[in-house]
């Protein structure tokens, strides 16, 4: 997946957006999930500082608009760079990073879509490998297309598990880009969406959602229906486990328990992070098969035997 940038492409995309009149709301946080706020940046006294200013300086440096220091201070040099970019993109030139300018910057950075594939004809499912930050679309269980993605930061990890798409929304949504697909995760609001920061793709950058390039998510959006299976897979160590699992328990540790049960040959149903009847039945089947007293409850003893503690 080679990233390419081009002024022509940027112009076309920006012109398209402006012509479509996509709203530039003052909202700074997506209402769809917990993704980061988009701060309005401008010259102020004292000057604005912060990681988003650093990010802006880096992005404008990469695009050739900014040649100053990467110091996280929104000074006059940076404001000039913003003006230069606004002029280039046909935006009102005011030196302010408002919602519309952020959006235009994101789309300007966006790579052109790769060779278009014909839509897959089989049943669509999605695998996101959190470790390699890739999303693979499957058609009838056969890999169809691979996309790079951004996943959650260490402090806001992407929830591993087996989810389904429960909601779809199109249109510019600020931090979630031009498309949004909600996942059925029971303990938070997570989804697959586009971005206002394409440079973050391939990094641990989100608040837990799966971020894609806008044109990628637009393509995927057309292929995926409500109810499609989305597996978010993570290797490495399991998260902290609670000491006792009973029916009704919800959380990331339940997903790891469900996956472990399946590895051991006992099917808990979809690893949906809910210790429901199917999971309890799988635990009971394991206990029965091993000749132990059947309780359907998982305590520390069982967690040790499962290799989860």
């Amino acid at each position: 997946m080679q990233l390419r940038h081009g002024l022509v492409v940027g112009w076309i995309v920006v012109a398209l957006i402006i012509s479509q009149g996509v709203s530039a709301t003052p909202e700074t946080r997506s209402g769809l999930c917990n993704c980061e706020a988009v701060r309005l940046l401008s010259m102020r006294s004292p000057p604005l500082k912060g990681p988003d200013v650093v990010e802006l300086q880096e992005r404008l440096t990469r695009l050739g608009f900014y040649r100053g220091p990467i110091d996280g201070i929104y000074g006059s040099t940076l404001a000039q760079a913003v003006k230069k970019m606004q002029a280039t993109l046909g935006l009102p030139v005011n030196g302010k990073m408002d919602e519309r300018t952020w959006e235009a910057l994101a789309l300007y950075e966006t790579r052109p879509a790769g060779a278009l594939l014909s839509p897959p004809t089989g049943e669509i499912s999605i695998l996101v490998d959190i470790d390699t930050q890739t999303l693979i679309v499957y058609s009838d269980g056969v890999p169809y297309k691979l996309y790079p993605v951004a996943i959650g930061k260490p402090e806001s990890p992407t929830p591993a598990g087996e989810w389904v798409i429960t909601e779809k929304a199109a249109g510019w949504q600020g931090a979630t880009g031009i498309r949004w697909m909600r996942l059925s995760n029971p303990w938070g609001s997570y989804g697959i969406h586009g971005t206002n920061n394409p440079m973050s793709i391939g990094q641990m950058a989100s608040a837990g959602c799966v971020r894609m390039f806008n044109e990628d998510v637009a393509e995927l959006y057309e292929w995926v229906n409500i109810g499609a299976l989305v597996v978010l897979k993570r290797g490495g160590t399991v998260s902290p486990m609670r000491a006792l699992f009973k029916t009704g328990a919800v959380g990331q540790d339940v997903v790891y328990l469900q996956w472990r049960l399946r590895q051991l040959g006992f099917d808990p149903g979809r690893a949906d992070g809910v210790f429901g009847e199917e999971t309890a039945r799988a635990v009971a089947a394991w206990q029965k098969y091993r000749g132990l007293k059947v309780s359907g409850v998982v305590d520390e003893n069982l967690l040790f035997l499962f290799g989860l503690l």
């Binding site: 132990l292 007293k293 309780s295 305590d299 520390e300 003893n301 069982l302 040790f304 035997l305 503690l309």
Partner: peptide, 11 residues
């Protein structure tokens, strides 16, 4: 107790 009795102590 009738059921698990100290597997965790071993581990």
């Amino acid at each position: 107790q009738d059921n698990y009795s100290g597997v965790r102590e071993f581990f």
